[in-house]
Amino acid sequence: TGRNQSASEYELTYATPYPPMHPFSRADQRWMTFVEERSSGRLSIRPFWGGALLSADQSVIEIRHGVADIGLITPIYMKGGMHASRAQAGFYGGVRTMEDQVAILKCASHDFPVFSQELRGLRVLALQGGNFPGVLTRSKPVRSLADLQGMRLRTQSETIDVLRRLGADPVDMPMSEVYSALAKGVIDGVVAPADTLKALHLAEVGSYFTELRISRGSYPARAMSLRAWDKLPADLQAVLIESQPVWERALMDEVMRGQEAGYQFGREKGVELIPISAEDQRHFDEVAQQSAAHRAQSLSKYGIDGEAILHRIQELVHERADGKVLSCDGALVGEGV
């Protein structure tokens, strides 16, 4: 830390696998501006975009060992060592907003030490929720859940089980192949949030976007290595603590903006938006709930009480639905290295 060529007193590196134009990165830039202004230029952030420094799925390990001081982490992509953090993102059935997703995880992580164990050597600087994926299809519209029957849909791993329970034929393929696969009918559709209509140009190859709300939760999304944290003086640490809600707000704003841009692009390309009936949505949520229960149970093989986590998160979802304000303070800090 503190490289000499920088004009500021402290310089931290920030790395992300996303390019600078991506909504996530735009939020990151807003956070950087905040930090630099609030520290009166004493603390500056040097960004590395597009995976130049950090990998997409091993960044937790890389930050822990100082490859970058701060970075984007995606526990939901980690195939090992973060089973609780990744599974919990599927426990938010019935959640309504990204604000709620973030607030719920803050409270839940107080109750389960497993989350800080999994974040060993890291200090979380921001949590991130996500907008709700829908179903983009090519030639057959999905107007009810029954239409999913037999459809070959590309989806992320958390949703595979739900789709199977509904009779669809989920496939896993790299996201980079989705455009051409959809264009040529290798797949019938893709489960993705609306921002991909523009970001991945999927509106060019899909005709129908079914607004089935596939619930998802939040996860720790930006983290700093504890070692780099410990080297900062207290007043700059305070700036970073203060920056957490700023970063989280910026992420929500930019994700929403990306979603709007996606819808806008979809309209331009003539994609038909299909609402789903309340009853179908309820049925879908029930199936998703069963799937989440199954997933929670299976955490026991890693020695994690997944059912307790699921129960607590659902409790918090209902508290929010009843209008209760959740305000759990304190940062999510991993154990020392």
Binding site: S55, D57, Q58, I61, E62, H65, G66, V67, A68
Partner: peptide, 17 residues
């Protein structure tokens, strides 16, 4: 530039990935 530990970890990540 980023220290021996980080460099070695990066090597491990890049190779297996």
């Amino acid at each position: 530039l980023i220290g021996p530990e980080a460099a070695v970890i990066k090597a491990g990540v890049v190779t297996f990935e």
